[in-house]
Amino acid sequence: MKRNKLSIFFLLVIGLYSCRNDDDGLLDAEVVPPRLLSEVAAEDETELNEYLSTHFYNYEDFENPSDDFDFNIVIDTIAGDNSSKRPLIDDVQSEIILVSSDNFSGLEEENDVPHKLYYLEVRPGEGESPTIGDNAIISYEGSYLDGNLFDSSIPPLSLYLSGTVRGFGQGITKFKSGGEIVDNGDGTVDFGTYGIGVIFMPSGLGYGNGRGPSGTIPAYSPLVFKVDSFSFVENTDFDGDGIPSILEDLNGDGDLNNDNTDEDTEPLGIYLANHNDSDDDADGIPTIDEIELDADGNFVGFKDTDGDGIYDHLDNDN
């Protein structure tokens, strides 16, 4: 089993790189006319199924690793000498995720369009899996279905999963991380046996009709991410309001970015979902002062002072 020593320096890197959800570079990008989300989702599903049925990964290397095996995933076409290989479609798992056109600019109104996320856990980690509200320490390689690489972060970095595109963040939650981080005393750390896997996502769970942070990803591109899941920060509190981010998923749909209690009071063009808002109800009282904390400042529970069934930090007339 591969164990990994990595420089402590890289653990201090926090960012949202290729897999983040933004529109950098769009000014120089070719404009692609908006299309129906449901139409593209059906096309992407067909394309992903074709890909998964005609490609395989080096599963035999993982089943019987040699002493010098690097535990890197290699995906290739089932053809010629590889014609008898087991296709990816036999190994992947999937999850249906509902997507709204609100997530993308310029699309016609469509809500709850089903998108299928595929993921392959090549090697389980010895630890637990992060939630969509956690910071995860990972490395990744992102490519198109034709195998061309568009970005990678081989040195590990810390990513807040709800700050990435939907398919990437949800995919990472399917992989177990490594064990307890051990400081080796020489500037490196050991993650133990960490998780290794692949995410296969339709464009609606990626950049949709956008072009990604670099402005180079073609619109409506299904994507593949190979991932090493090293560790994560349990109960990450992204906005520092005292509430673990995962508890700010009010509608329980696994998307923290569509829960915004005080949206009606926010200035035009400003949208701060609760997991990114230190005053969730815009009553002028910081959320951290409207919840229960222990003596060490850790979250204990919610308050409902006036007994109206609405927690204080979500109740602007409390």
Score class of each variant (00 low, 15 high):
Leu12Gln: 07
Gly15Pro: 02
Tyr17Phe: 14
Cys19Ala: 10
Arg20Gly: 10
Asp22Gly: 07
Asp23Pro: 01
Gly25Gln: 01
Leu27Tyr: 11
Leu27Arg: 13
Leu27Met: 13
Arg35Trp: 02
Leu36Val: 04
Asp44Met: 03
Glu47Ala: 15
Glu47Met: 14
Glu50Val: 00
Tyr51Ser: 08
His55Phe: 03
Tyr57Trp: 10
Glu63Ile: 07
Pro65Asp: 05
Thr77Leu: 06
Ile78Gln: 08
Gly80Ser: 02
Ser83Pro: 02
Arg86Met: 03
Pro87Met: 08
Gln93Leu: 15
Ser94Ala: 10
Val99Ile: 15
Tyr119Pro: 06
Val122Gln: 05
Pro124Lys: 09
Ile137Gly: 00
Tyr140Glu: 07
Tyr140Gly: 01
Asn148Cys: 06
Leu159Asp: 04
Gly163Asp: 15
Thr164Gly: 03
Arg166Glu: 02
Gly167Glu: 12
Gly171Leu: 02
Ile172Ala: 13
Ile172His: 06
Gly178Trp: 00
Gly179Leu: 10
Gly179Val: 14
Val182Ile: 06
Asp183Ala: 03
Asp183Gln: 04
Asp186Ile: 12
Val198Thr: 10
Ser203Glu: 08
Gly208Met: 04
Asn209His: 12
Ser214Met: 10
Gly215Ala: 13
Gly215Arg: 12
Tyr220Gln: 05
Val224Ala: 00
Ser231Val: 00
Phe232Ser: 09
Val233Cys: 02
Asn235Tyr: 08
Thr236Met: 09
Asp237Pro: 03
Phe238Asp: 01
Asp239Gln: 05
Asp239Glu: 09
Gly240Thr: 06
Asp241Trp: 05
Ile243Leu: 00
Leu247Ser: 03
Asn257Ser: 14
Glu263Asn: 15
Glu263Ser: 10
Glu263Cys: 08
Thr265Trp: 15
Thr265Ile: 13
Asp277Gln: 05
Gly284Leu: 06
Ile285Asp: 08
Pro286Leu: 15
Asp289Thr: 06
Glu290Ser: 15
Ala295Asp: 13
Ala295Val: 11
Phe299Ala: 12
Lys303Ile: 02
Lys303Thr: 08
Asp304His: 06
Gly307Met: 01
Asp308Ala: 14
Asp312Glu: 10
Asn318Arg: 13
Asn318Leu: 14
